[in-house]
């Protein structure tokens, strides 16, 4: 599990995030929602070790190689084909090159990218590039998936499709997820827990919401649930305070 206590982090003397505490249980899906500059992405970077916390405690119950990070940009190597990009993480983990490429091809197939393995990123559409990035992370069988608004740049239909596919995979494999998003509906439809952050600097958790919908879950069905509207309104009111405070 992930356990964070009184964490402060940032890039200068004034922390972006201050005195933050949260925890994530195995198989739990949590979302962080907050205004821009509230340190949501910085928190994910701190969890992966890309950023050192200034104070506080960050306990990660998974090994570093069990943590997958899905970036806002697909961040694929432009000089590697889709297959090579997916195989890269496997090769870094010591999988023999041929076997890594075979597994990569399997992942591309599973994500609806059959026959596109030899294409370079610029020869793929935005949605396909996202799927390659997703395949790259899922191929490493993460136990914790950190996602920094990974599908924000996609159109609504594509976004819904990829999110649904991902949710199905996450639920089946029991993967823990920490999602950073600006989309309150998305946070509510996907998560077991939603954390609302105040504006930065010195952002903090304003409120923690437990989401009552059962799993496995269909985001479309959840949105039609009579409890969804009132919950969304409550979340929105809290976020409004965060934005204007």
């Amino acid at each position: 599990m992930l356990h964070i206590e009184h964490l402060s982090l940032g890039y200068g003397p004034t922390p972006v995030l201050h005195d933050l505490s949260l925890s994530l249980r195995p198989g739990e899906f949590a979302s962080l929602v907050g205004p821009s500059g509230s340190g949501k992405s910085s928190l994910l970077r701190a969890i992966t070790g890309l950023l050192q916390p200034q104070t506080g405690r960050l306990e990660l119950g998974w090994k570093p190689e069990e943590v997958g990070f899905l970036f806002q940009d697909d961040a694929l190597l432009p000089w590697r084909t889709a297959r090579q990009n997916v195989a890269l993480g496997l090769k870094i983990r010591g999988v023999e090159a041929k076997e890594a490429e075979r597994q990569a091809e399997g992942w591309l197939e599973r994500l609806g990218l059959s026959g596109l393995g030899a294409r370079y990123p610029h020869q793929l559409s935005g949605g396909q590039r996202k799927r390659v990035a997703l395949a790259q992370v899922l191929a490493l069988h993460p136990r914790l998936l950190l996602m920094d608004e990974p599908f924000a740049s996609l159109d609504a239909i594509l976004r819904a499709q990829i999110t649904e596919d991902l949710l199905e995979w996450v639920e089946r494999e029991g993967i823990s997820v920490l999602l950073v998003t600006h989309d309150l509906e998305e946070a509510l439809a996907l998560s077991d827990r939603v954390y609302i952050l105040s504006g930065g600097p010195k952002a903090r958790i304003l409120r923690e919401f437990a989401v009552p919908f059962e799993r496995p879950r269909d985001p479309l069905v959840v949105r039609a649930d009579p409890r969804f509207g009132p919950l969304l309104r409550e979340l929105w009111q809290t976020l409004e305070v965060a934005v204007w405070s």
Partner: peptide, 13 residues
Amino acid sequence: MVVRKEATPPNPT
């Protein structure tokens, strides 16, 4: 995982 088809940009000529 569900396999979905998406428009693929043509190879540049």
